[in-house]
Amino acid sequence: MKANKKRYAMLIDLRKCIGCNTCAVVCKSENNVPLSVWRSWVKRVEKGTFPHVKEYFLPIVCNNCAKPICVTVCPVKASIQRPDGIVYVDPHRCIGCRYCMASCPYGVRHINPLTKIVEKCFWCFHRVDAGLDPACVLSCPTGAIFFGDSSDPESQIAKALAENAVQVIKAELGTDPQTYYIGLDQEVVDTKESEGE
């Protein structure tokens, strides 16, 4: 039997997330992300009214979509999807036109304020290719983030994806996101700056 093609995926168990921001901080340090921009961050939303209040955390990284709109629209093929599914930006190719930023439904791309090219989370492929986990996965103190080859049925992530009710952000857009969540609350995704004022 032919071996399945490798397909990386990420799973974030929000029940375990304590909102410590370690993932966001190690990402900055691992990838040399300048001040004012973030490749991963933790959105915080408060739901309910006192005394029935709960604070929710939503760690956000790139979804490394299976059908990435950023790769479709990039005019110079600087946004590239690797065979294993990771989407990255070639820093020598990108002209900084920001079309990918305009079309990404998740807002996970930014212009590097120093180099003026677009950067994003690519699941630390420099670490993954060396056989290590992405920095956020390694550093999460509660082990809430899983990463691995989802096409290998024996992998931890494939089992976790099969055995849990998982969600993705904005599934309706047909981008087929590969960052899955357990316990994703739609209200937490939808709450934006303009509301509650």
Binding site: P75, V76, I95, C97, R98, T115, K116
Partner: peptide, 24 residues
């Protein structure tokens, strides 16, 4: 608008016909 204007020639060399900017 673009971040790296001196790379504008990339638009004519690295083509992606799915992108409207390449058509443009």
């Amino acid at each position: 608008h673009i971040g790296v204007p001196h790379r504008a020639w990339h638009l004519f060399v690295y083509l992606n016909f799915e992108s409207p900017i390449t058509w443009g």
